[in-house]
Simulated scan of single mutants.
Amino acid sequence: WEGEIDQVIAQCLRVHVSTVERTRARYVEGGIELAVQDRPHPPKQRKLDGQQEAFLIATACSNAPEGRNRWTVSPT
């Protein structure tokens, strides 16, 4: 039965079993505070500058092209 409980937890929470295993290991290491605390992530480089982001938002909030019900990224 070893490992089955982690699999059940993962399935119920819709996460991977390795996520449950890592969380359990952090709990054993440092208690509940460490287990629920998200580790720091390095900053990610922005893909769009402010002007590009504003244009994208304005476009997405505008009416869809003629003949379309909504905006899509599909080429069809």
Rank of each mutant, 00 (worst) to 15 (best):
A25P: 10
K47G: 10
E66H: 02
D49W: 08
W71C: 02
G3M: 04
P65N: 07
E4T: 03
T76A: 07
A25K: 15
S62F: 04
Q52K: 07
K47S: 11
P43M: 05
A25T: 10
G3D: 00
I32W: 05
R24G: 08
V73D: 10
V17N: 04
N69V: 09
R68M: 13
E4I: 06
Q45L: 06
H16D: 13
Q11G: 13
T23K: 05
Q52M: 08
Q7T: 06
E2G: 06
P65V: 06
V15C: 06
I5L: 09
P43V: 14
R70F: 05
T23H: 02
R24P: 01
A60K: 01
T72N: 05
W71K: 03
R46S: 12
V8I: 08
L56G: 03
P43D: 15
R70Q: 11
R14K: 11
A10M: 02
T19K: 02
L13G: 00
A60I: 13
K47V: 15
A10W: 03
Q7E: 10
G50E: 12
E4M: 04
A35M: 08
R22E: 09
V36F: 06
L34C: 05
T76I: 09
V73C: 09
H16V: 00
R24S: 14
E21T: 15
Q45V: 04
A54Y: 03
T72H: 06
V8H: 00
S18V: 12
Q37M: 12
V20T: 03
E66Y: 07
A64T: 03
T23N: 09
E53R: 15
V17T: 14
A25V: 11
L34H: 09
S62G: 14
C12A: 15
H41T: 09
A25G: 15
I32M: 10
H41K: 10
R26Y: 04
H41W: 02
H41F: 01
H16W: 00
T19Y: 04
C61P: 00
N63V: 12
V8P: 02
Q51G: 07
R22L: 02
I9W: 00
P43G: 12
R22G: 00
D6K: 00
V20E: 01
Q37W: 01
D38C: 02
E29F: 06
V73K: 12
I5K: 06
